[in-house]
Nucleic acid binder design. Structure first.
Lengths: 203, 203
DNA sequence: ACCTGAACACCGTTCAAGT
DNA sequence: ACCTGAACACCGTTCAAGT
């Protein structure tokens, strides 16, 4: 019954979900194709019907991660559409961090070493997410809230900072004195404030 | 001769160097204990004499990375001691990025999932590096160049941004339009400028 | 103390084959 | 088209043993 359904075309989806769960619970180092296949109840070669190799499956998970992140960014941008662009940008940052904390499997994979040349859909999905930030920045520049630098450069700065903070938060590599009683969300929001405001006097 | 020397106590060092080289050339996913041992010319169990398991060896590489980074930061801070603290902070950022581009093995490992609780020397080495940034920030605050926020928070912001940029640069995950003809060093310096100056109008 | 060899339970991937 | 089973060359790790 369940097994038969794979013959109907959702083994690919089952593999993505299974890989995701395994990465989340055991870490990417302990995720194996064979274990995923076993969990799904399929032979250890079945995955090769849908993915060229292990890397291709991981790249597909990464792509899915970007797509889900894009969706969440769209939602939060929509929900904050009455607020200022700066508020929107902050909301995007918080959403990004929350997404990565809630979906650590994606975090482990989204910026991994899966060359964009080999996985063009992954590249597109990644740029699509970043594009959401760029759009908010551009609107903030039009409304005079954000400095008139290259919007891609500004969004890119936020983008890379968010990624750095996510991984450092996730792997517990922050100095204990900094974490103290703040939640990841609060930490992220505080860090991002520093970036928005700048660190130099008389900026 | 060479083999005998391992009996004299430098197998541990040879393992660190070998692991580093292998990560740099083949990536961390393709690094194996057995291959490292083979390259060094020792049995596949010899590593266990010096490291509890593969993770412990990787954590040791990470620790070494932080120590070398700390040394490079010390050097550049010393060399720029006549300049302003802001110039020093920028020089630290450039040094950090250059270090990670030149030593991608360390980059792949330094913020990896090796729990600080299990590897206290790694934790210490990591905080030691960050401490260098904190010191520069604190001096910049004393001289009135840098805003009087919590210096750890400010240095932490730079720290996480540098990490995010390194990994994104290294894995080629930057939008092509951004990279264009800029070198990694230029990119880093430009991105960091945005962070120093802030992105909001009237910061 | 430092290293080796055999053994175990696992991998990713390929190939021929089954429906 | 979609899946399986056997086979290959690898892993990390443990254990008993060698000097």
């Amino acid at each position: 019954m369940n097994k038969d359904s794979y013959h109907h075309g959702d083994l690919k989806h089952a593999l993505l979900v299974g890989a995701c769960e395994m990465i989340a619970t055991e870490g990417i180092q302990n995720m194996s194709l064979r274990k995923v296949a076993r969990k799904i109840g399929v032979s250890h070669n079945a995955p090769y019907q849908h993915f060229a190799d292990k890397e291709a499956l991981l790249a597909a998970v990464a792509q899915e991660g970007f797509q889900r992140l894009t969706d969440e960014l769209d939602t939060v941008i929509e929900r904050t559409s009455t607020q200022s662009c700066v508020e929107q940008l902050k909301a995007c940052g918080n959403t990004y961090i929350k997404f990565m904390m809630d979906n650590s499997a994606y975090l482990e994979v989204m910026f991994g070493p899966y060359p964009y040349e080999d996985y063009p859909e992954l590249a597109e999905a990644g740029l699509e997410s970043l594009q959401r930030l760029i759009a908010v920045v551009a609107r903030g520049q039009a409304s005079g809230e954000i400095k008139s630098l290259n919007p891609v450069e500004v969004a890119g700065t936020v983008w890379m900072s968010l990624h750095g903070l996510s991984t450092i938060l996730r792997n517990g590599k922050l100095p204990p004195q900094l974490v103290s009683e703040r939640t990841p969300t609060q930490l992220a929001s505080d860090f991002l404030d520093v970036i928005y405001e700048g660190i130099l006097v008389q900026a």
